[in-house]
């Protein structure tokens, strides 16, 4: 492992090489149409969710029963639902639920998975085995069944959805972090730190973590659509957000039930889900190709 490239004491030649490499990566990213398409869609997702209260033409919960299930018009570009609520406004606000779940869910599971993975990879063998067993046990349990069981005990809520998302996605990060840590633990700079008397937390968080976080961030980008889909799926099944809160899953559920009378609800509810999935997938793959070409599409 080389010394940190940002070190001002590093030779100018090395710094120049690193700078050139960064520029090349950025150029590769900017000239990849999938990367740019993904970036645009992701920015659109964040922007529409964050600015939903200003972008939505109507209160997402405001009812106009005489106008129930009316088709797309200039006043309601995605039509209205069974209670006359503006579907477009509900989609925008539903994006906030997706953003909330994905931001908190992915951050929390990434953080927990990172720590557990590093402990598994750096700790004694028995601890590694125990962690792997836990990861596999959690992964083997279907998210929907876990959600149904939890909801039966606690009742449906956004908090339950969040907890399910975090719990079921931790193993993905944990396994990647563990593998990366295993590869690092016997490297020279780690051995040197240990011989200098550095504590385990210091080694883990100051030396190993910066070197394993990169792949995890790429994985996180790829996991966002998975998390959004889990939320939408649970809400579709009626075990996610509570009425009247809009989420893409509840919009799809309500639309599916009246698909022959008001097909625009399913179409309008499905489009953001598809675009978000595509956006994060494109972006994640592009980042992976740029930062870890060995795993790229050319393989």
């Amino acid at each position: 492992m080389s010394a940190p490239l940002s070190d001002p004491a590093a030779p100018a030649e090395i710094r120049e090489s690193a700078s050139r490499e960064r520029r090349e990566k950025l150029w590769r990213f900017l000239t990849d149409w999938q990367a740019m398409a993904g970036l645009v869609l992701v920015v659109l997702f964040f922007a529409s969710a964050i600015f939903a209260p200003w972008l939505a033409p109507y209160d997402p919960n405001a009812m106009d029963i005489p106008a129930r299930m009316s088709g797309p018009t200039w006043a309601h570009i995605a039509g209205t639902d069974q209670l006359g609520r503006d579907t477009f406004s509900r989609i925008l606000h539903g994006g906030r639920v997706a953003l909330y779940i994905s931001a908190i869910g992915v951050s929390a599971s990434l953080s927990i998975g990172l720590v557990l993975g590093m402990i598994a990879g750096y700790g004694p063998r028995w601890l590694d085995n125990l962690m792997l067993l836990m990861f596999d046990a959690v992964r083997s349990f279907p998210a929907v069944i876990l959600a149904l069981a939890t909801v039966a005990l606690t009742g449906p809520s956004l908090t339950v959805v969040l907890a399910i998302v975090i719990l079921t996605t931790i193993p993905s990060y944990g396994r990647v972090a563990r593998t990366a840590t295993l590869a690092l633990r016997h490297t020279e700079f780690i051995l040197a730190e240990r011989s200098l008397g550095a504590s385990t937390p210091r080694i883990l968080f100051q030396h190993i973590m910066p070197n394993v976080i990169g792949p995890l961030l790429i994985l996180a980008a790829m996991e966002v659509p998975v998390v959004v889909s889990i939320e939408a799926g649970l809400s579709f099944l009626g075990i996610g957000v509570l009425p009247p809160q809009a989420s893409w899953g509840t919009i799809l559920n309500e639309g599916y039930l009246v698909i022959r009378d008001a097909p625009w609800m399913v179409i309008a509810g499905g489009i953001p889900l598809i675009l978000t999935t595509l956006g994060f997938t494109f972006l994640g793959e592009a980042l992976r190709d740029v930062f870890d070409p060995r795993m790229g599409r050319g393989r």
């Binding site: 029963i65 069974q82 009626g238 009425p243 009247p244 039930l257």
Partner: peptide
């Protein structure tokens, strides 16, 4: 958690 009941509940909620 049936459709008509949930719609009814939401109107009552409002």
């Amino acid at each position: 958690n049936w459709q008509e009941r949930l719609l009814t509940a939401q109107i009552i909620q409002a």
